[in-house]
């Protein structure tokens, strides 16, 4: 029989999953669908270009994608706001328990879902079980024609074929900012750095920051009443809040 203390443990676990450390707010009303975030993400994270053949087959690799939908029947078709979709960094992620090799794990320090490329054997179970379908698989070793190899980001691993990958919330930037703050003996200041997609967005539709800091812009925004979280009903505790029709 469940006792009161058992219930408390459940509550604690839920709040831990709900809480998180880093979060994002995406305002779909001001997103223009320009794909600057997609390009910036690919530059920052060494995401390969798959070529036209594989791209035509639907294998283009992006950690963030702009989804476009429409409402109504022709000719009364109305476009709905663009929806940037990326890893929601779930507090209770469905991708994590299904990996047999512990390649998809939850980080204690950053409260993010990590993908350990070196440990991945490519069962692709995580991608099947991700309700947001935001994981990309390296179907081949993709070539980077000159001069593209010159713009590799040295802070990010280059992945080989047979490995799953996904958005990391630019964890290399998080670490850099934390290291700098630590050497200067202070905490990371809100707005000191941001993720590549948020940095590139010309409309400022993406806000990134600490959601465990009640003063930060992102936690202020995510408390707004018209914010929604995608597929929240699955109990995944996503850490990205969307604004639509505000």
């Amino acid at each position: 029989m469940a006792t009161v203390s058992d219930l408390k443990i459940t509550e604690l676990k839920l709040s831990e999953a709900e809480g998180g450390k880093w979060g994002m707010v995406i305002d779909q009303d001001i997103c223009t669908g320009c794909q600057a975030c997609v390009a910036a993400c690919a530059m920052e994270n060494n995401i390969p270009f798959v070529g036209d053949e594989d791209s035509g087959y639907g294998r283009s690799m992006h950690w963030i994608r702009i989804e476009r939908f429409w409402e109504g029947e022709y000719p009364e078709v109305k476009m709905t706001p663009n929806q940037p979709m990326l890893c929601q960094q779930c507090g209770s992620a469905t991708c994590e328990p299904v990996c047999p090799a512990f390649a998809t794990v939850h980080s204690q320090a950053e409260q993010l879902n990590l993908q350990v490329y070196n440990r991945c054997v490519g069962t692709r179970y995580c991608a099947n079980n991700c309700p947001y379908q935001v994981r990309s698989f390296n179907w081949r070793d993709y070539q980077r024609p000159e001069p593209l190899p010159n713009q590799f980001n040295p802070d990010v691993t280059v992945r080989r074929r047979g490995v799953m990958e996904k958005c990391t919330f630019c964890i290399q930037r998080i670490h850099k900012a934390q290291d700098k703050a630590k050497s200067e003996g202070r905490e990371v200041v809100d707005g000191e750095f941001t993720a590549a997609c948020a940095q590139a967005c010309p409309a400022n539709a993406i806000t990134f920051g600490r959601i465990d800091d009640p003063e930060s812009l992102v936690s202020q925004l995510s408390k707004q009443a018209h914010g929604v979280k995608h597929l929240e009903e699955l109990g995944t505790f996503p850490h990205i809040t969307y604004f639509k029709g505000g």
């Binding site: 328990p97 299904v98 990996c99 047999p100 090799a101 512990f102 440990r119 991945c120 054997v121 490519g122 069962t123 692709r124 179970y125 698989f137 390296n138 074929r161 047979g162 490995v163 799953m164």
Partner: peptide, 26 residues
């Protein structure tokens, strides 16, 4: 169907210096 079949033995519980074991939740 494995992406990197040459590493299939990572799915087996074998003793290794990094104490890495298969995920028994999966």
């Amino acid at each position: 169907h494995l992406g990197r079949v040459w590493l299939f033995y990572w799915l087996l519980p074998y003793p290794n210096e990094r104490m890495l074991w298969p995920n028994m939740h999966s």
